[in-house]
């Protein structure tokens, strides 16, 4: 990307060279600070988790034992909880979000589309703690008294839906996360659909396609960008803390049932960090933060490359994660 400046005229006085240089240096220092902060995040989480990494090595990621009293820490239940709750959220939100994005971009009149897109973006500005108390006080009683007993009665033969209707647990966390990542998926996918060439639609319709077949053609063209939007949503779900902490039940064990309480990497940090006694305990929690950081880093890096590539480098996605 070029700078928006005309070339310096050749005979221009160099009177201001020093002031210009100093000003530029100052701004460059601010830009460097962005790196410094990124480096500090890496450095701090690596340093803090050093003790735990040295003590447990790779078994930290494969052990299910989380015993602060005995000083043995394994993060597998939390890794599992994070992956399952986020996976469940994507399972719910991807079809819904895609359908809504197609509706907003292709079917609705432009003004309706803009209005609904605005409402959806409002969802993104609600603090996660608000989703949390909604999940805890509204969704959980509904699940406990209505949805979960129904699931147990009709699908209880599956290990996925056996157990007791607690209300809070993996299912609740998955639903709340789905609601939270929907704005990301819907608004980005809509923008990507709107940026595909009109001619694609027109050509498909001219060949005798129905609307839905034409939409299929457009979706095909927009696939990398939509995939990027979905993965960005996944990145958000993986790192989400407060809402999940409030509705997942905070039990550090792995259960096949979605109705059972669980815990995620983010929720265990939120719950136990201030109570962590002893260096090893604290270090183990920081290592969980490190693992979570690396996981979201990978997911976001892939997503941003996909979105960037799909939008031809034009669209800004900085504020949407």
């Amino acid at each position: 990307m070029g700078t928006p400046w005309p070339a310096r005229p050749p005979g221009r006085a160099r009177r201001w060279a020093f002031a210009d240089g100093a000003y530029r240096g100052l701004l460059t220092a601010f830009a460097l600070f962005v790196f410094v902060i990124a480096a500090l995040i890496v450095y701090e989480s690596a340093r803090g988790s050093g003790l735990s990494v040295r003590t447990f090595g790779w078994s930290f990621l494969t052990s299910t034992e989380w015993d602060p009293v005995a000083g043995r820490f394994g993060a597998l239940p939390y890794l599992y909880g994070t992956l399952v709750s986020s996976g469940l959220a994507m399972l719910l939100s991807v079809p819904l979000g895609l359908g809504a994005a197609v509706f907003l971009a292709e079917l609705a009149p432009r003004r309706v589309g803009d209005a609904v897109a605005f409402v959806v973006e409002l969802l993104a500005s609600i603090p996660s703690i608000v989703y949390g108390i909604w999940g805890l006080f509204v969704l959980a009683p509904f699940l406990r008294t209505a949805l979960e007993p129904w699931l147990i009665r009709h699908l209880g033969f599956l290990p996925l839906f056996e157990g007791f209707p607690f209300g809070i647990g993996m299912l609740n966390a998955g639903i709340v996360l789905a609601v939270m990542v929907l704005p990301t998926i819907v608004s980005l996918s809509r923008e990507i659909l709107l940026s595909t060439p009109r001619t694609l639609r027109e050509a498909a319709l001219a060949l005798g396609s129905t609307r839905s077949e034409a939409i299929g053609v457009v979706l095909d063209a927009a696939r990398p960008g939509i995939l990027g939007a979905v993965i960005l949503g996944l990145g958000r779900a993986l790192g989400e803390t407060m809402a999940v902490t409030m509705v997942i039940g905070n039990a550090s064990r792995i259960s096949a049932s979605l109705l059972a309480p669980g815990a995620t990497m983010a929720s265990v940090i939120a719950n136990e960090f201030t109570e962590a006694t002893g260096d090893l305990y604290l270090s183990a929690l920081i290592e969980i933060a490190l693992v979570l950081f690396v996981l979201t880093l990978l997911v976001n890096a892939v997503a941003r490359l996909l979105v960037h590539w799909a939008a031809g480098g034009r669209r800004d996605v900085a504020g949407t994660a």
Partner: peptide
């Protein structure tokens, strides 16, 4: 880097 920072979970920022 700025884009990547936008994706860092807030709890991780708290730990840092």
């Amino acid at each position: 880097t700025a884009d990547v920072l936008a994706g860092v979970p807030s709890i991780v920022v708290g730990v840092v």
